[in-house]
Simulated assay, not measured.
Amino acid sequence: MPDHQRADARRNHTRILAVAEEEVAAHGADASLEQIARTAGVGSATVRRHFPTRRALLEAVSRKRIEALSDRARELTGADDSRAALLEWLGDVVAYCASARGLAATLAYDGSPPDPVHENACSAALEEAGVPLLERAARDGAVAAGVTVPDLITLAVGIALATEHHPDPAARADRLFRLTVAGLSPQR
């Protein structure tokens, strides 16, 4: 939020964001923008002025979670076991996506060409944070060649989206993540 905005515009932004956080928590990424506007006491145009796209609103709602995941990646970068550190961070990403309604949709790559104005800042932040973890694990031979952080984020998003309607999405997401890491072959 630019500092040069009028005080009422800053208040509107803060109020819209607070209402959006509640609505996304209750209804996920499909939360009604019109309901957000009504509850915030502003018009739909005001919501769109502050958040020109649904993704922009979801990214604003998810910003603190993304910062926490990015911080966690930085904390784990110096861990002794690079594979365990990468998997712990990726497990945190899966858990956040499964428990924070709307986050998986925010991180999803929707196939549209990059928009320089409204690019996927959440995915970009996670990619930047995860690269050192992945590079270290790759140098240690703990990760298959060619794996990228976008691959890992897409995997986390896919697991979260596949489990979002399960009675216990976090537990189901964790099981699928562990299965993905272990593979289908029996342990020998």
Rank of each mutant, 00 (worst) to 15 (best):
S112P: 05
P132M: 06
V94Y: 06
L33A: 12
R74D: 13
L33D: 08
R54E: 11
G146N: 08
A129R: 00
G28Q: 02
V42N: 00
H50F: 08
L57T: 00
R54V: 13
A29E: 14
A20E: 02
P116V: 14
E67L: 08
D80E: 09
A105E: 10
R101K: 13
V117R: 15
L90Q: 15
A37V: 06
S32Y: 06
A31H: 02
V42T: 05
A37P: 02
R72T: 13
F51E: 01
L57F: 00
A85P: 03
E22I: 08
P116Y: 14
L134F: 07
A145T: 15
G111W: 05
V42A: 00
V94Q: 06
D71Y: 10
V147K: 10
G43C: 10
A138D: 14
R65V: 13
E88S: 13
L76R: 00
R136Q: 06
V143H: 00
L134N: 01
A25S: 11
A73K: 05
L133C: 01
W89Q: 00
K64T: 11
A68Q: 14
A45S: 14
R74W: 10
E127F: 05
F51Q: 03
R38E: 15
I66W: 00
L103S: 01
A84Y: 05
E127L: 03
P116M: 13
P132S: 03
R74G: 12
Y109F: 11
V94K: 08
E22Y: 08
A124H: 12
S70G: 15
E119L: 13
S44Q: 12
L33P: 07
P116H: 12
G78R: 12
V47E: 02
E128S: 15
V94I: 07
A98V: 07
A85Y: 01
T148Q: 06
L103W: 08
G141C: 03
G130H: 06
A79K: 03
T46A: 12
G102L: 05
D71C: 09
L90I: 08
R49F: 13
A31M: 07
S62G: 07
D71N: 11
S123I: 03
A145H: 14
A45K: 08
A79G: 09
L107D: 02
T77P: 09
E67W: 02
N120M: 08
A73R: 04
V93A: 03
A137W: 01
A138V: 11
V93L: 10
A121S: 15
L133H: 06
V24I: 11
R49P: 05
L133G: 01
A125D: 11
L107E: 00
H118K: 10
A85I: 02
L69E: 06
P113E: 13
A137L: 00
T53D: 04
S44Y: 10
R63N: 05
I66C: 01
S112Q: 11
S112N: 08
G102W: 03
V147P: 05
D71V: 08
L33R: 12
Y96E: 15
C97S: 14
A29V: 05
R101C: 07
A124W: 06
G146F: 03
A31R: 05
A84L: 11
T46S: 12
A121W: 14
R65Y: 11
L86D: 04
S82W: 03
